[in-house]
Nucleic acid binder design. Structure first.
Length: 688
DNA sequence: GAGTTTGAAACT
DNA sequence: CAGTTTCAAACTC
């Protein structure tokens, strides 16, 4: 490698040009050479030699890799520039080139070497090469004056640039451009110009050249890799440009693709910690679908909405986490950005790298919740609304964790510690879920089961049915009197039922004993009269009461917190981001939690659900939190006959329109249908 | 923000 | 299954 190059190197020095021409060898060769460079009229010597030498190398291995071609071309160019050459030098060159090619093929030529060769070649003179050969690496050592020195210096320089992220692109481009030059400049035998051009190319990277671009495209694999390295920052990659370049040649396509994947994956990661692997990791397939990126965002959006439904009625603008709209917008923008990036990656060369860098930070800013933002949100009045779990010891792998219990991954707003409820730990999450479900198949089912039938059927009045919805297992309140959020029934905006074992139940949504909501309200009024809050509460309650009446059976209106679960259910696929893949066990259990149902829904079902979801979504976006309950009510969530494995607390909700005692639920035939269909669906999620 | 209360979840 | 402990949300100050 070195030897041939070196020998060549010295040939082309511009300064040496005169010497070269004067050289007797040159003259001899020139005279002997049958080949006459078409364009080298000015300098027939140079061209002839070049043409003569170059073709062999080119034709010998036409199918070489682009890199090889490039190097070869470059060489050719050099040779061509060197012009008509004596056979000897030519041969030596051919040999050299051949050797180079073989070498490059074997070990992926070091770009640097190639560049060196290329740069040096022009200078090389067939005759004089020997000296320089000895010190190929040291341009300074070159005996050939500034030109040779310049080029040599330039050559090494280029790779260096390539190595440095931004410059890397230049480095990559170097070859193609050189090639370009070769083609275009074969006509101009002027060494100086060639050298200067080369130097320019090396250092500055001429923008021209569709050809250069084309070459790039040819090299896309390597280029993309380089780009990724650069753009992503390739934190993992070594900064050394040379290595990158080399690797570009040497690295198999797979490696490159892997890099691509990694990048995309990262992008995805930021967007969604989705399901499958790590969020990032999750969407291993991230590359798979850009769409996925968007989808997850929706999930967050829903979650955010759910959360916001409680508390985030305002401040939508500031708190992105709380405002689904905002979040969606952000993510969508992100995803679009990603798309663009990807697209550009394909189409663009250097620019991509530049863009990648900005994109990533953007993602981080947007998706990765900076604690600042989080705090700002929380502090900004949304308070808890946006906050999700705050687990410290459970690692968010127990039902203590709201997120985990809801079947969603923890996200930014969460302030949990040592959280494992993330896509990254999907396996762990699934395993844990499975384990929990083994204990209680309904563990992840919605805690509050809403009976849409009651609403539809209406026969039941609030008086008859304190609440159309019931808590899955009922509460067990001892001190809160079911008047605080400690009570899950109250929190869910549903009345207590037979299932409840609460003491002193005063649940305003319905007492365990079945007292009507009206009564409850009256009682509450009495209770509240003394309190200052009474007025506000009263108005609110009245409103609620009216709303509930309108809804016919107990629609929990105001205080009803929306469960993420339910929202998720509504948006089966949209929420994929944070949602954890449901374990089959639920389905198999026959108790279908709405959440899982949605996930397992067949496509048609999904479509239906989707349409429904869209409505709901719109409603959510537009409507206030109070209206959320309706959505929930209309949600496809089937009534689940809550049968706990223990049989402990879970008992079928009493009363109501018991249409039939189907397995799924007695309340609604419609729901029954849904439930029935559900089991048949194979689980879409990977089972562990 | 820290501490307390509460009840579900988990454990024995 | 009952009792206890653990946990995190809800609540209070």
């Amino acid at each position: 490698m070195d030897t041939p190059q070196k020998s060549i190197t010295q040939i082309g020095t511009p300064n040496s040009k005169s010497r070269f021409e004067d050289s007797p060898v040159f003259n001899y060769i020139n005279s002997l050479s049958p080949i006459r460079p078409v364009k080298s009229i000015q300098n027939p010597h140079q061209f002839s030699s070049l043409n003569f030498t170059s073709p062999p190398s080119v034709f010998t291995s036409p199918h070489l890799t682009s890199s090889h071609k490039e190097s070869r071309f470059f060489k050719t160019h050099n040779s061509s520039s060197s012009s008509s050459h004596p056979t000897n030098p030519t041969e030596s060159r051919e040999d050299e080139s051949t050797s180079n090619e073989s070498v490059s093929e074997e070990a992926a030529e070091d770009t640097k070497d190639v560049n060196v060769d290329d740069a040096s070649k022009p200078e090389e003179t067939s005759v004089e090469k020997v000296l320089p050969q000895t010190n190929p690496g040291s341009p300074v050592a070159s005996p050939y004056g500034r030109d040779s020195t310049t080029e040599l210096s330039l050559v090494p320089y280029a790779p260096t640039q390539g190595g440095n992220g931004s410059c890397e692109g230049a480095g990559m481009e170097l070859q193609p451009k050189m090639f370009d030059n070769v083609q275009g400049k074969t006509e101009t035998p002027d060494w100086e110009s060639l050298i200067s051009d080369a130097s320019e190319l090396l250092i500055f990277d001429s923008p021209d050249a569709s050809e250069a671009f084309r070459c790039f495209m040819m090299q896309r694999a390597s280029t993309s890799e380089a780009r990724f390295n650069t753009g992503v920052g390739m934190q993992t990659m070594q900064p050394d440009a040379n290595k990158k370049l080399e690797s570009s040649d040497a690295i198999p396509y797979e490696a490159v693709s892997f890099l691509h994947r990694g990048i995309r994956r990262r992008c995805l990661d930021f967007e969604m910690p989705g399901n499958k692997q790590t969020l990032s990791e999750n969407n291993t397939a991230a590359c798979e679908s850009s769409s996925r990126c968007i989808v997850p965002s929706i999930g967050l959006h829903l979650n955010a909405i759910a959360m916001s439904s409680k508390d985030c009625k305002t401040n939508v603008t500031q708190d992105y986490s709380c405002s689904g709209n905002i979040q969606v917008g952000l993510q969508s923008s992100i995803s679009s950005t990603l798309q663009e990036t990807l697209d550009q990656t394909e189409n663009e060369t250097r620019e991509d790298a530049d863009q990648d860098v900005p994109v990533e930070p953007a993602l981080q800013e947007l998706n990765l919740s900076s604690p600042k933002k989080k705090r700002v949100k929380l502090d900004s009045g949304e308070g808890d609304s946006c906050k999700r779990c705050n687990c410290k010891k459970s690692k968010c792998l127990k039902l203590y964790c709201e997120c985990f219990a809801a079947g969603v991954y923890c996200i930014e707003p969460c302030s949990c510690i040592d959280c494992f409820n993330k896509p990254i730990h999907e396996d762990t999450v699934l395993a844990t879920r499975k384990q929990i479900e083994s204990r209680n198949p309904l563990a992840f089912a919605p805690k509050v089961i809403r009976n849409s039938d009651s609403v539809l059927e209406t026969g039941d009045d609030a008086s008859k049915t304190p609440a159309s919805a019931r808590h899955k297992r009922g509460c067990n309140c001892k001190k809160s009197n079911c008047l605080k959020k400690y009570c899950e029934c109250y929190q869910g905006g549903v009345g207590c039922s037979i299932n409840c074992r609460c003491e002193g139940c005063k649940n305003k949504f319905g007492r365990k004993d079945g007292s009507s909501i009206v009564d409850m309200e009256a009682e509450q009024e009495e209770e509240n009269e003394t309190s200052e809050k009474y007025r506000t509460a009263k108005s609110q309650q009245n409103t609620e009461f009216l709303m509930r009446k309108e809804a016919s059976s107990a629609l929990p209106t105001t205080p009803t917190p929306i469960y993420r679960q339910e929202l998720v259910e509504l948006l089966p696929f949209s929420s994929s981001k944070n949602r954890m893949p449901p374990p089959q066990s639920l389905l198999g259990g026959g108790s279908s939690s709405g959440i899982f149902n949605s996930q397992y829904i067949r496509k048609p079902d999904i479509d239906l659900t989707q349409s429904r979801m869209e409505k709901s979504f719109e409603t959510v976006a537009e409507d206030r939190a109070e209206e959320m309950p309706e959505i929930l009510i209309h949600s496809p969530i089937p009534n689940i006959k809550s049968v706990s494995p223990n049989g402990k607390r879970v008992s079928p909700p009493h009363m109501e329109s018991s249409s039939s005692g189907s397995i799924s639920g007695r309340r609604s035939g419609g729901r029954k249908l849904i439930l029935q269909s559900i089991p048949s669906f194979p689980s879409l999620t990977p089972q562990h």
